[in-house]
Design a protein around this nucleic acid. Structure first.
Lengths: 212, 212
DNA sequence: CACGTGTCAATGAACGTTCGTTCTCGTGGA
DNA sequence: TCCACGAGAACGAACGTTCATTGACACGTG
């Protein structure tokens, strides 16, 4: 509930914003963007409602700020792993940290963002950017890690992406969801795909010759 | 915007409720549960706001009614296909109709329901029921269709479910999402699983011997 | 037919509440 | 003194909901 106050030397503004976003995150996870009131946020942030407006133009700006922060966190996470050198390790770590050991709270927030993206243009734009960046990173990583020239990075991502999203949804809405099997599946899919062993797209219908 | 009025011979109450739910569905898809106002619904349904309360106790009861109807539609769809005799065909049809050729509007509504389920107990209960019913049906169908005794229906569903959910999310948030590749993947997964050719769960880590 | 009566879907203005936002004032350090 | 920061009362708007009233229709009676 309380925050050390100074994250930077002259860190008034930025640290305050972070503090507010933390409080907002907790409230939004609990009640959603539209049912959480400014008074709720005020209580959670231990500050008066009027004071928010020194740091954010409006409630919506606050929501946008939160979504923007989530996007930055994702990009940041990727960057860290890039620096670790081992790209294959980075790939597996990303999957483990971002889509498997994800907390229920984070999953709920992500679900709320997706939902809001379907009707709020500002959120839609940010979400589209996140999706594009994620996609680009995965495709680039697939290309770099591909063992066989038969590997089709675009196609592989088209298979992997919905699986990851589905894991997030499951975590958010099912009390004791176990992502284990889906993750195993995810890894199998990645290795199969990187080895260029994925079946070709079917011609007429969805029926295909299948694996093995 | 207008409705033929008489769906049943003496179909006052039920038909009226359906009419209201139709209007509510349109508004909720457009603005979400909490931003859509009763006046919006009134405009869409071409009736006065006060009149809603003859058919639903409150706005929340209206939301619950809508979610309940969605659940019934799912169960109904399954029932129809069961009657068609061909269980394998039913399985593929379910997938095609419910998770692939799903309209953007339906996907958005589903996303909204999932999101609401994370904080509204009534919706959470309905959603849990839907999830359980869906799961039971798939597991039963897998058991009936399994070619090899090595097929593990529970495990297979754990792989298939997040993929389907992810397709819905993609449809809802990505303007021109193509579910094709994911569906192909889904079918491959089903056939592999039914043939009992899925890799066993990994022991120590997520790294597995993979398919083929 | 004409008329009084009851029923019921439907209205839409009005209500109390609650929301996001603004305003005024106080305080503490430079 | 000045200014950045903050508290919290107050504001107008908009919300979900209520309620007195309306209009259309069906009947039973003269």
């Amino acid at each position: 509930m309380s925050v050390p106050a100074s994250t930077e030397a002259r860190g008034g503004q930025a640290a305050r914003r972070e503090h507010i976003l933390d409080a907002a995150e907790a409230c939004f996870v609990r009640n959603g963007f539209h049912r959480a009131t400014m008074q709720d946020l005020a209580r959670e942030a231990a500050m008066s409602p009027g004071n928010f407006y020194r740091y954010f133009e409006s409630k919506e700006a606050l929501v946008v700020g939160l979504v923007e922060r989530e996007r930055e966190r994702g990009a940041q996470l990727v960057e860290e792993m890039e620096r670790s050198g081992d790209r294959r390790g980075a790939l597996l770590d990303i999957i483990a940290r971002y889509f498997v050991s994800i907390t229920r709270e984070a999953a709920v927030l992500r679900l709320e963002i997706w939902s809001e993206a379907t009707r709020n243009p500002a959120i839609a734009a940010l979400t589209a950017r996140t999706e594009a960046e994620t996609r680009d990173w995965f495709v680039a990583t697939f290309s770099a890690l591909a063992i066989s020239p038969d590997c089709d990075p675009d196609r592989l991502y088209a298979l992997v992406a919905p699986l990851m999203k589905g894991i997030v949804v499951g975590r958010a809405i099912l009390p004791d969801y176990d992502p284990g099997p889906a993750v195993t599946q995810l890894h199998a899919l990645l290795e199969t795909g990187l080895d260029g062993l994925l079946p070709r797209a079917a011609r007429a219908g969805p029926r295909i010759t299948t694996l093995a």
